[in-house]
């Protein structure tokens, strides 16, 4: 069976909600029915067939040939399938994802990628916008168990209210990484200002942290067995390039003392 492929025919004239294009929502539909699914967000009533050529039938392997910063909700609630986007996506990539794998050969140009995702792996070859893996307003959790791999840089508020799971960023991260997080791990080359502000539990690991908050308290050098184990796991999940982000020896800061204070920032 060939992969179920959505080939973009023209630039989207409006923001699209592609949350319906996941196996659970498509499994009982014919190709004609899929083409008639509404994906527009204005009264114009844009349907799949207006913008995409649909081919293939394999629901476990979904592909978007072509992307756009107006692709919202790609891979929402994905369970057990593989999804590939050849291009950029907008907001809410992999929102509430349960399991499976998403690869974006491009950048996340909108916020809340991987929000509330409880399982699976998301890999982004480009950059990630502000509030990636962050909680949407009013929600208790951002990323909640999935693994998010970003090969480029990430913006501000990465993992705001992170609940569980691992975020790996090959490049640098903006301000407020891991703000208000209650669990999980963020690993990156560099974190910006106000890293971990308001975090209760969890771990931030970075080569450098800009202007670390005084509510993080130095608690010595860290050479526990955990770091080599983590490095090995990162190498198997994301590759050797990411494994190098995990230091051999780290300076450990406990915090955020403003909040519960049971989190840590490891710098090395």
């Amino acid at each position: 069976m060939a992969a179920l492929t959505f080939t973009l025919k023209a630039a989207p004239p409006e923001r699209l909600d592609l949350s319906l294009l996941v196996p659970d929502k498509l499994k009982d539909l014919s190709a004609r029915e899929i083409e008639r699914l509404g994906i527009g967000t204005t009264p114009t009533g844009v349907v799949v067939g207006d913008l995409f050529t649909v081919s293939g039938t394999d629901l476990t392997d979904i592909r978007f040939a072509g992307g756009s910063d107006r692709f919202d909700g790609v891979g929402t609630g994905l369970k057990g399938a593989s999804l590939h986007v050849d291009g950029d996506v907008g907001a809410y990539l992999g929102r509430g994802m349960k399991s499976g794998k998403i690869v974006v050969a491009g950048s996340l140009t909108g916020p809340y990628g991987a929000t509330a995702a409880t399982g699976g792996v998301i890999r982004v070859t480009g950059n990630a916008a502000d509030a990636t893996a962050a909680s949407i307003p009013g929600a208790m959790a951002g990323l909640a168990g999935a693994t998010l791999i970003i090969e480029g840089n990430a913006g501000d508020l990465l993992g705001d209210r992170l609940r569980r799971g691992v975020i790996l960023v090959q490049g640098s991260v903006g301000a407020l990484a891991g703000a208000r997080m209650v669990g999980g791990t963020i690993i990156s080359a560099a974190l910006g200002r106000r890293a971990g502000q308001g975090m209760k539990r969890g771990t931030l690991i970075a080569g450098t942290v800009e202007d670390i908050e005084p509510t993080f308290v130095f608690s010595g050098s860290y050479t526990e067995a955990f770091l080599p184990l983590l490095r090995r796991w990162v190498a198997s999940e994301a590759g050797a390039g990411f494994a190098a982000l995990v230091p051999q020896v780290a300076q450990r800061y406990r915090g955020d003392m403003a909040s519960l204070g049971k989190g840590e920032i490891l710098i090395g």
């Binding site: 502000q197 308001g198 908050e213 005084p214 509510t215 993080f216 308290v217 130095f218 955020d256 003392m257 403003a258 909040s259 204070g261």
Partner: peptide, 15 residues
């Protein structure tokens, strides 16, 4: 505000 919250809760802070 963070420093105040920490000291209010009796937790240590750095300079």
């Amino acid at each position: 505000i963070g420093l105040l919250r920490a000291r209010l809760g009796g937790r240590p802070v750095a300079a």
